[in-house]
């Protein structure tokens, strides 16, 4: 069992989830509450990773953060090394790759909050930001939890994007899915089977726990 690969995957998934929570909430808010007519374009871009082959996304990310791009050069000057084949590079790619799994549950939940509750809050003199914080967010806990869990689970199992952007450096970019692929390539089926089973169990437990929490804690039956 490749424990260092598993630990790396967990770190990557956790970091990605935290970043997605920070930037996914404002993006989802904007998608729901903006009256700009062209916002469907942004929605389409956010949803792209759902249909795009991970290798295509990984390829563009690799180009975008590589030494030929302004972003890559800027980061290299700042950090002293480039982004490709580093953990930071993986985080950027994973955030883009898992974006729809966070933003879509967030925005679906924001949109389901009764608009009149917001209007009531505004009419009571409460600003749009405070209304979001005190009314929309507390009523969107379920969507937030779903988005967080899905982002985490999705990042945990990603393969193509990681391979394109991160390569296969043990302890740095070799995630659990790549480790399984390596094991199969070297005909070590026993190791591949153990790691795969662990990933299956972990993913299932995370999702099952989330759904059961949503049933029993967040949806209290009416008396």
């Amino acid at each position: 069992m490749d424990w260092s690969a598993l630990w790396l995957s967990v770190r990557l998934a956790a970091t990605t989830t935290v970043v997605l929570l920070a930037i996914g909430i404002p993006i989802a808010y904007w998608i729901v509450f903006s009256s700009w007519r062209g916002k469907f374009l942004v929605e389409a871009i956010v949803a792209l990773p759902l249909v795009l082959p991970p290798t295509v996304l990984g390829f563009y990310v690799l180009i975008a953060i590589g030494p030929m791009s302004p972003l890559g050069r800027f980061y290299a000057r700042l950090a002293g090394h480039g982004l490709p084949f580093t953990f930071e590079g993986l985080v950027i790619a994973s955030v883009l790759y898992s974006m729809p799994f966070a933003v879509q549950p967030f925005s679906a939940e924001f949109a389901s909050v009764d608009r009149r509750l917001l209007e009531a809050s505004w009419s009571l003199g409460v600003s749009r930001f405070d209304t979001f914080r005190r009314v929309v967010l507390p009523l969107s806990i379920r969507g937030l939890v779903t988005g967080v869990v899905l982002s985490f689970a999705h990042t945990l199992g990603e393969f193509g994007v990681v391979l394109m952007v991160g390569g296969n450096l043990p302890g740095v970019t070799r995630t659990v899915s790549i480790s399984i692929y390596d094991a199969v390539q070297s005909l070590d089926y026993a190791s591949a089977s153990r790691t795969s089973l662990l990933l299956l169990i972990v993913s299932f437990v995370i999702l099952a726990t989330t759904y059961s929490l949503q049933r029993s804690v967040w949806i209290r039956p009416r008396h």
Binding site: R116, S121, V126, R134
Partner: peptide
């Protein structure tokens, strides 16, 4: 329809405007 904030108690609903609003 009485559009009360479902996650707040009656007391917090009634006090919402004075506590968080510009009309404090």
């Amino acid at each position: 329809e009485p559009t009360l904030f479902p996650h707040l108690t009656v007391r917090d609903n009634i006090g919402y405007g004075v506590r968080h609003g510009s009309d404090r």
